[in-house]
């Protein structure tokens, strides 16, 4: 039996309105599928539409045309509230700038993800968050606020947060771009190891050769995005 792809895009287009009334098409992808449990690295020039693609797959940006299936569900066929719940339960997102909530501790930042989903029973949420952080080497940092953590530690918390609801698909937007080279290598090694071990489908934007070497597949956005050639580097 052939496994169903984790992510499938068909004829997806994304345009943004401009002030002069015209529109700017930043993404035009005829077809893209990510196999289950695969690690795909997406690369390309700055502004070529990589983040826009991740936002579309995450369901936080609505495509102008086309369909996107994640884990077998056409996400934009869902009403917004159900799409939010789907995103909380089936997708993990690691941001370039970590985006931890400053008012919450490391443990609470991880638990926050669980609050938006029904994936982990309430009484187990604290223990699961602590286990995830401990697995990423942050057992002694549970009660620290983001500003009390190093950048490498902050990104590990963000990775734990993305894994909190045990989603089958993980999206990572240059997760180590704001880290120094040594820390970036350490964090990426941990991230990839965790994804492999937990059998996640990973789509990661990265230009790091060491990551590219670890990936099952490397995609250049310019090759899959027809709009990139038409507009030059104008995407997000």
């Amino acid at each position: 039996m052939i496994a169903r792809p984790a992510v499938v895009l068909r004829s997806v287009k994304k345009s943004f309105p401009l002030r002069d009334g015209k529109t700017l098409e930043v993404l035009d992808i005829e077809g893209l599928s990510l196999p289950v449990r695969s690690c795909t690295v997406l690369r390309g020039r700055s502004g070529s539409g990589k983040t826009t693609l991740l936002n579309l797959i995450a369901g936080v940006s609505v495509p102008t045309a086309g369909t996107i299936h994640v884990d077998g569900t056409e996400i934009f066929a869902l009403p917004e509230a159900r799409r939010d719940r789907f995103r909380a339960e089936r997708l993990g997102y690691v941001f370039q700038t970590f985006n931890l909530l400053s008012a919450l501790s490391a443990l609470e930042n991880v638990m926050l993800s669980m609050m938006f989903a029904d994936a982990v029973p309430k009484r187990e949420q604290r223990r699961r968050a602590a286990d995830l952080l401990a697995g990423l080497g942050l057992a002694s940092r549970l009660s620290h606020k983001p500003q009390q953590l190093s950048r490498g530690e902050q990104q590990r918390v963000a990775i734990a947060r993305a894994l909190a609801n045990d989603p089958p698909v993980l999206l990572a937007d240059e997760p180590c771009a704001s880290l120094d080279a040594t820390t970036a290598r350490e964090v990426l090694a941990v991230f990839l190891a965790v994804c492999r071990e937990a059998e996640k489908t990973l789509l990661m934007v990265s230009h790091d050769d060491s990551v590219i070497g670890e990936a099952d597949r490397v995609l250049d956005i310019a090759e899959i995005n027809s709009a990139a050639g038409r507009n030059g580097s104008r995407g997000r």
């Binding site: 909530l101 926050l112 993800s113």
Partner: peptide, 16 residues
């Protein structure tokens, strides 16, 4: 607003 957007990206509903 960035933190609110982060919560929304993590799956928080608008109502939340």
């Amino acid at each position: 607003r960035r933190e609110i957007a982060t919560m929304r990206a993590l799956g928080a509903r608008r109502g939340t």
